[in-house]
Design a protein around this nucleic acid. Structure first.
Lengths: 329, 329
DNA sequence: CTGTTAGCGCCTTCAG
DNA sequence: CTGAAGGCGCTAACAG
């Protein structure tokens, strides 16, 4: 491996001069700068990031903690998160450690901290955290790291939150439906109770209930298509429309209704491309997951740099109609 | 930050002794080992991975290069790959840099090499490479890095391949179908031509044709459900069975057939959980993506360590029947 | 078995 | 504007 020293020799200057050129520091004459750059090119010199990091120029690394519950539907979301986060990190020149919660779930909080510190991690972003992820929640209270939580309202001095307003999104998508559909009783397919996002979505439904005088029948289907199917099949009470807290459940509901040969309007939530498989047009909420991830990493960088305290960042959502042929590429 | 030196002082020993204890080297008496560990605990010492890397003859880092064509169906596969690879890398104590090809597609090969080298990358694994990824293919010929390719038959001195035998898998799944189904003319839905895996799968079909005396109607549907639909709708020739080179196309075919109100057997390929959405039982090939990724990382480590040349590793596949309610959790 | 002493590759004062 | 020298935190011979 050829190093800064070789370049210095080749260019006939001192190593420190090379360093200055490489890092684009002032106080170097154009002449020597040229010489050095020439030598760098000729030798194919590549600065060693590890050494750079060690000698105190290290911004430190960040960790991306992904939630890996093997559910095909959420894989798409996670990939978007990951892609957005990695791109942004690269842009910000932040070194990244990618982790899955399954890799650390069984470890004690101390082990996790030790691991992260040994990896030189200064802060991290957690995606799709749920309420029963105890050690993670504990870790968020810690002040050792700066952190950003996506999809959960957890803020403290060293922790920011990035997400879309779930309450407003749920409200908006239903309000949109109600522009064209009469509905007095709405069957609401809710997700798992341990989900932070459900709180907001339920609140959105309550607001609909109050403002529009609708009655809401809440049924848990745990974000599962299968359970949503069952709920629809078993529901005795009458209702005019189905609102689902996820696209996956919306698809299950739609299928069940079709099999029962009854028609009801159904609306979803997320805007995943799987919606295309519903086989019908469906109204849903679209969240820009890539953008969310980028924002999260950006915020983490800000926390790491400055002295800003943690805060909540709310990103906009969009109400869309997705249709079979639109989506399948 | 407290370092090895502090621990040494605290324990009343030399730094090298601490280092030995930390790295679990021999030639340290139990007594001093205890002293040192005590000091480590009291001071909350955490070895700095960066310094370790710089100092020792680090195995170097490895890069995982993911193919990010936003296709919901393949997201699941990629997540499996990623999870498997990360777990294995952690096990092997290899530092990982995760990349998406979209992050480097527009860059020149030199830029990529420079970037990887600056990141101290010594080798990488590429997942789901396609034939038109020119710079990547070029990079594989290079000898700068050790590399492992998943799902493409590219082997040279410094490059290994890990995948399942696509030809045998395609053959087996059809052979399995033919045990119970009579079929003389098979409609084969092929994927994109730029896909390495298609070569093997087509070969598998040819073998079926020869051995069983079947006629194969090959139709390109580019791994797209939509196109598979269209193929089915437009196909004038008669056929007894549909074989698809991916689950996604199989689903499209199944749906189209249902809409046309005709029944044909359809079989898929991949074993993604999306198959559950087909709404019917379907025979398909299941590949263990996690295992594949683990093997790939293991092989990369081996290449990095020893002096083995690149080679081809073939993993087993499985023929399964997936059904609606099995899959949706 | 333990301590001393060089580096790893680079950055960063601090003199010249 | 340039060069010499001292680390960053740790590992790895080499002496004791």
């Amino acid at each position: 491996m050829i190093g800064i020293k070789d370049v210095a020799k080749r260019a006939g200057v001192a190593v420190s001069t090379v360093s200055k050129v490489v890092n684009d520091y002032p106080n170097v004459s154009e002449a020597t700068k040229k010489k050095v750059n020439k030598a760098i090119r000729e030798l194919g010199f590549v600065p060693n990031a590890v050494a750079q990091a060690l000698s105190s120029k290290q911004p430190g690394r960040i960790a991306l903690i992904m939630n890996d519950t093997t559910q095909s539907a959420v894989d798409e979301i996670d990939m978007q998160y990951l892609a957005g986060a990695l791109v942004k990190a690269r842009e910000l020149n932040l070194d990244v450690v990618t982790l899955f919660v399954s890799m650390i779930r069984n470890k004690s909080i101390d082990e996790i901290i030790t691991y992260l510190r040994s990896q030189n991690v200064r802060g991290f972003v957690v995606f799709g955290l749920s309420k029963d992820e105890d050690t993670m929640l504990e870790l968020l209270k810690t002040t050792t790291f700066k952190k950003v939580v996506v999809d959960a309202p957890l803020v403290n001095d060293s922790t920011s939150t990035v997400w879309v307003d779930q309450c407003a999104a749920q409200y908006d998508v239903v309000a949109k439906m109600l522009e064209t559909v009469q509905a007095h009783r709405i069957l609401y397919l809710a997700g798992k109770e341990n989900s932070f996002v459900m709180d907001g979505r339920l609140a959105g439904m309550n607001r609909i209930a109050e403002e529009r005088g609708c009655e809401i029948l809440v049924r848990r289907a745990d974000f599962s298509e299968k359970k949503a199917r069952e709920v629809i099949f078993n529901e005795k009470e009458s209702y005019d429309m189905v609102v689902s807290a996820s696209d996956l459940m919306a698809i299950g509901a739609m299928r069940a209704l079709t099999e029962m040969d009854v028609f009801k309007h159904v609306c979803g939530f997320d805007g995943i491309s799987l919606m295309g498989y519903a086989g019908k047009q469906m109204t849903t909420v679209r969240q820009d997951f890539k953008k969310i991830a980028e924002t999260a990493v950006g915020e983490l960088a800000a926390l790491l740099e400055g002295n800003n305290k943690g805060r909540e960042i709310v990103l906009p959502h969009e109400i869309v109609r997705m249709e079979y042929l639109d989506v399948i590429s």
